[in-house]
Design a protein around this nucleic acid. Structure first.
Length: 788
RNA sequence: GCGCCAGUGGCGGAAUGGUAGACGCGCUGGUCUUAGGAACCAGUGGGCAACCGUGGGGGUUCGAGUCCCUCCUGGCGCACCA
């Protein structure tokens, strides 16, 4: 029976042109796919388009076109470019997320998630990107800036749709351990993002009132050292104590701090009662308390927390040591015996935490708590070019999630895309409807879904892109997970975490047997290229630079040019290489070879003229080799070919594609040096079959011209007998240092070979007048002689 | 600051604890050619040599690029996460 093998490269955003990064990505996948097909696997290798998203809207405004027209035109263009690469893709599985035959099923999934309690709407303080004019998920804010625009993100209170990714926080974390074919780096990043920490939640009663403040801490053992409470500016207690104008004023003060670490706080003129000591401690609103973590409130233990210490010093708050240490070590974060804490004195940290947490539980003061940094995924986007959310609102503000029978909600074509704001909001004709159930006037949700929702399940839809439901559960069980998923590391958290969440949610809703979407993840490195600048700091294209008398100059203007580091190709740095031009000049196979030859696929590849040229030369060399008439073939040639088959197979399986290229050179170096020509010998067939995944076009044409065959059969089975090497060159060491080697046969007798070894001059000279203490013979590997 | 990864010739990079530098680029010399981004041959870690060499210093081992400790450097990620 054929075994399935789902090989997938991250589908592209149809920006209009493929770039070298795409080429490298797809070549890696294509080599895998072609290899596994030759092995007889049932290979799935689809391609599609991540077609919703903002660039289309921006382009529409800029070029007075329509996002749909722009996108479809780009897809057409990019598809023809991909065709030129002649990749072995299942084009009949093609899909584009902007087509209603894709997004209508996404609307079904939205309804499923809603019914399962995994999609919900709430008022929330969200990240607002002022340039893209939309909300962003936490994952899409990097250093306080929008991931696409780089604009400073603002906080806005809006009613938004969320997916409950936190429901799976624990499983998303623990599941990482089973992903043994994922890069450690990606797993670490996800782990940090999920941010699990174990501690306690403690209730602090507010003095003179009936309510409590909930506080999460990982150090309940330091509770006796708590001398103040601090809350974030967005905590609801702040609104209870202060008026809008006061809050605004404080926010302003916080914003004005230039040193990020500087602590600033204002007393709420309110106290909390210490849950054990029965004393009152003040509540502050402080700039360093995160409102998105825990409950947005902390207890300050200045003696054993750096931040609390800074704050306490600034506002002259008491500092009480509760962990044994010297005064000059404060704030002391390390381990030690608990002191000044009647219930805990003398205990070490872990014991003390257990003990005090138990006490909290018993008395109802608090409880054990596992806290996660990850927040629910905000999926509403105030943009036109995305999947409509299947929800309607009534005049009284209530809403209804549509039934599946009411789908699809088509995205209207006739919209005015001028300037800023969501075009759907202005489209009354589309927006205003009569509810088919209540017959009441209603209006549609005008937010669309984050495009990361589109890419969270496309690999499932690829299994059957024409099905009149999202997917067929049996199909999913049989063909998922994706066996090899290849793409850039920039999606380490965003896309890959969302997809894992989706898989788990759909598993639970549809009773699927698949826990994880991607069994193996391979992250390919980016392509870099030399950069050049004039002395006026203008970037110069590498091809416009020439060398004269040891200096670099720019063509035409003859300005002096300085060479910069090799950097990721980008239009702004003018160091981009266009795939179309390269394919035209060097051909597909040479391009493919270069994409894998100079560095391991998961590392950076530096684009060089020499690199692409020598790849081209290799193809010429192979063609030339196979044009020679057949010669005598010896046993060593047969062995060499077997080794070649074996090595190249191992290297494809391990993604060590750079070593595949080395294997090819090694083979042809051997054959040419010995002037052994195989022409139409059976071995040629084997070699061409092994070359096929890497240089398919050349292999096909040689197969045709030499064997008059149109196809390759299966990947050759390695003859392990032939791989066994009988004659070996045995290294001989003295005191663990290599002295010489001796040619012998495998399976030699230790005492016999030693006799031979002792006759060797190099050995004799070294052991003369010395006593041989010991001989270590690692059979067929090495001999090490230890002398006194 | 914390975490992860990595440091090997002029360069990109190879090496299940067992001959360090496979393979490629570049370079040197040569052959052929009207010509060369062509092809072919020879060479290419350092040192005249004994020997020395995988960022530095320790350690484990008969034996370390590989394992352990420590420091340094670089890259990436996270970063007031209580």
């Amino acid at each position: 029976m054929k075994s399935k093998n789902y090989i997938l490269e991250m589908f592209p955003y149809p920006s209009g042109n493929i770039h070298m990064g795409h080429v490298r990505n797809y070549v890696i996948g294509d080599i895998c796919a072609r290899y596994h097909k030759l092995k007889g696997d049932d290979v799935i290798h689809p391609m599609g388009w991540d077609a919703f998203g903002l660039p289309a809207e921006n382009a529409a405004i800029q070029f007075k076109t329509h996002p749909k027209d722009w996108t479809l035109e780009n897809i057409k263009n990019m598809k023809s470019q991909l065709k030129k690469l002649n990749l072995d893709l299942d084009w009949d599985r093609e899909l584009a997320t902007c087509n209603s035959d894709y997004y209508r099923y996404q609307q079904e999934l939205f309804i499923d998630l809603y019914n399962a309690g995994l999609a919900y709407k709430k008022d929330a303080l969200v990240n607002w990107d002022p340039i893209d004019q939309t909300v962003l998920a936490n994952e899409q804010v990097i250093d306080g800036k929008g991931w696409r625009t780089g604009a400073e993100v603002e906080k806005k209170n809006l009613s938004q749709w969320f997916f409950k990714i936190t429901h799976y926080a624990e499983e998303l974390l623990s599941g990482l351990e089973k992903l043994d074919l994922w890069p450690e780096k990606v797993k670490t990043m996800q782990k940090n993002w999920i941010g699990r920490s174990v501690g306690a939640e403690i209730k602090f009663k507010i003095a003179g009132k009936d309510n409590f403040l909930n506080i999460f801490t990982t150090r309940p053992d330091t509770i006796y050292g708590a001398t103040f409470i601090a809350v974030s500016i967005n905590h609801k207690i702040v609104r209870d104590c202060l008026g809008d104008s006061e809050i605004k004023k404080i926010k302003n003060e916080f914003d004005q701090i230039s040193d990020e670490k500087e602590k600033l706080g204002f007393s709420l003129k309110l106290n909390c009662i210490h849950p054990i000591l029965d004393k009152e401690i003040p509540i502050y609103v402080a700039n360093f308390v995160l409102d998105t973590y825990g409950e947005g409130a902390i207890f300050g233990c200045p003696a054993h927390d750096e931040r609390d210490y800074d704050f306490a010093k600034k506002y002259s708050l008491p500092i009480i040591k509760v962990i044994e240490c010297n005064d000059d070590e404060l704030p002391y974060i390390g381990n030690g015996k608990v002191i000044n804490s009647p219930m805990l004195n003398g205990f070490e940290k872990d014991e003390a935490i257990d003990k005090i947490t138990n006490y909290f539980k018993k008395t109802g003061i608090g409880s054990e708590k596992v806290n996660y940094k990850i927040r629910d995924w905000g999926v509403s986007r105030q943009r036109y070019w995305g999947c409509p959310i299947p929800v309607i609102y009534y005049e009284d503000g209530s809403y209804r999630v549509l039934d599946k029978s009411e789908l699809p909600v088509f995205l209207p074509y006739d919209v005015k895309l001028e300037g800023k704001g969501n075009a759907l909001l202005k489209n009354d004709e589309w927006r205003n409807i009569i509810c088919s159930k209540t017959k009441k006037p209603a209006f549609r949700e005008t937010d669309t879904l984050d495009t990361f929702v589109d890419s969270s399940w496309y690999y499932i839809r690829f299994l059957n892109n024409k099905l009149e439901k999202p997917f067929e559960p049996n199909n999913v069980n049989n063909f998922l997970p994706v066996d090899k998923y290849i793409g850039g590391i920039e999606h380490a958290i965003l896309h890959l975490l969302y997809s894992r969440f989706f898989m788990k949610a759909l598993r639970d809703i549809y009773k699927l047997k698949v826990d994880e979407p991607f069994k193996q993840l391979f992250t390919q490195g980016m392509i870099t290229h030399k950069t050049y600048k004039t002395q006026k700091n203008e970037w110069v294209m590498p091809k416009d630079v020439y060398l004269e008398n040891g200096n670099l100059y720019k063509l035409k203007t003859k300005e002096i040019v300085l060479e910069g580091p090799s950097e990721k190709m980008s239009k702004s740095k003018k160091n981009v290489i266009e795939p179309d031009e390269i394919l035209k000049e060097y051909g597909i196979d040479a391009t493919r070879i270069f994409m894998i030859s100079d560095s391991p696929p998961d590392r950076e590849l530096e684009w060089t003229e020499e690199g692409i040229q020598s790849s081209k030369n290799l193809t010429h060399r192979i063609v030339k080799y196979f044009s020679q008439e057949q010669s005598q073939i010896d046993q060593s040639t047969k062995k060499k070919v077997e080794k070649f088959i074996h090595d190249i197979e191992m290297n494809i399986l391990n993604f060590s594609l750079n070593k595949c290229v080395a294997d090819i050179y090694t083979l042809f170096n051997f054959l040419e040096r010995k002037k052994i020509y195989l022409y139409n010998h059976d071995l040629s067939k084997k070699i061409l079959t092994c070359l096929f995944p890497i240089m398919p076009n050349l292999s096909i044409s040689l197969n045709k011209s030499i064997f008059n065959a149109n196809d390759f059969d299966t990947w050759p089975i390695v003859d392990l007998e032939l791989l066994k090497e009988n004659e070996i060159r045995l290294p001989v060491q003295i005191q663990g240092k290599l002295v010489t080697t001796i040619d012998t046969l495998k399976g030699y007798k230790e005492n016999e070979i030693l006799k031979e070894i002792y006759k060797l001059d190099k050995i004799k000279n070294k052991i003369v007048n010395k006593k041989i203490v010991k001989v270590i013979n690692v059979q067929d590997k090495i001999i090490n002689i230890i002398t006194s």
